[in-house]
């Protein structure tokens, strides 16, 4: 029974990994740009949720939407003011731009919010429900299910709408897209907004169920790299499966090896993946 408990807990956390990783796959997989600050976007989403709850009150829908909106705006601004310019620059500039941004955001959060762990003050999603002998905190259940729904919505946006087609077109060939009347800059800004927005809402969902500190961004950033590499670059559905698997592996290793090894296992998995199948588990060679 305890094994089932661990598996369910891992899958629910993995669903949130899937949500913010599918945001990363928009940028890394489709636009071929590495964002080292993606984990920090998740972290900022958590604090955005906290600030909204403390200052304005309101339920999960309110602070979830607020975190998504705030991070969407931040992502678009970062594209327009920073990424757009370094895209034309050398590799050094491309890698250092978001690496420096990650440091800036992470330690600004340390400075502002201190290194202490915080959690959302009591909200409607407290309590635990029992299903067939296993106990699941309501907050984890709601956050996990919401994350899966949002990931699927993102997939629908990409595959079933005109905006999604425009995104795919720009990812394929910005020049040709421009000839079709699409403005690549706007679409890229939109992609960055969607990417950061999904990280922000994932952060808000995480905040309902798990305590955190400013350092979580680093771990989430690496987890997002692992998930995207596992799931195949540019595939939202691939990220969904891979996120669930990584959540499961992490929960299992935390339970059977000890809590300090749950990050070690993820990093080791990432290194092993780079060694063996750098094109991704589901990617083409």
């Amino acid at each position: 029974m305890i094994a089932v408990q661990v598996i369910v807990g891992g899958l629910l956390l993995g669903a949130i990994y899937a949500l913010f990783s599918s945001g990363l796959t928009l940028i890394w997989g489709m636009m071929n740009f590495i964002n080292f600050a993606h984990g920090e976007f998740v972290m900022l989403g958590m604090y955005a949720a906290l600030l909204v709850v403390v200052w304005l009150g309101g339920g999960p829908v309110t602070f979830g939407a607020a975190a998504a909106g705030a991070l969407f705006a931040l992502g678009a601004v970062i594209y327009l003011s920073l990424v757009r310019h370094v895209l034309r620059g050398p590799m050094l500039a491309q890698i250092l731009s978001t690496f420096g941004l990650a440091l800036l955001l992470r330690y600004a959060a340390f400075w502002w919010f201190s290194a202490n762990y915080v959690s959302l003050p009591g909200n409607a999603l407290s309590g635990t429900i029992a299903i067939g002998g296993i106990f699941i905190p309501v907050a984890q259940l709601v956050a996990g299910v919401a994350a899966i729904v949002l990931t699927l919505l993102l997939q629908l946006l990409l595959t079933r709408t005109l905006i999604g087609s425009a995104l795919l077109a720009v990812a394929e060939d910005p020049g040709a897209a421009m000839l079709m009347g699409i403005r690549p800059d706007r679409i890229q800004a939109l992609a960055w907004g969607l990417s950061a927005g999904s990280a922000g809402v994932a952060g808000a969902l995480l905040a309902t169920a798990y305590p955190w500190s400013p350092s979580v961004g680093e771990t989430f950033g690496l987890i997002a790299f692992v998930v995207v590499a596992f799931g195949g670059f540019g595939s939202v559905l691939g990220s969904l499966y891979a996120g669930l698997i990584i959540g499961l592996i992490q929960a299992a290793s935390a339970f059977w090896l000890g809590a300090i090894y749950k990050d070690v296992v993820v990093y080791a998995l990432f290194v092993a993946l780079l060694w063996l199948r750098p094109q991704g588990l589901m990617g083409k060679a």
Binding site: L82, H85, V86, G89, P90, L92, A93, Q94, L96, S97, F99, G100, L101, A102, L103, L104, L105, R106, Y107, A108, F110, W111
Partner: peptide
């Protein structure tokens, strides 16, 4: 030391953006 990181991050971003 926390502030050092913030300043470093800012400098790195500025170098990448304006003077790689």
């Amino acid at each position: 030391s926390g502030l050092t990181f913030i300043i470093y991050g800012g400098i790195i971003v500025l170098i990448a953006r304006f003077e790689p």
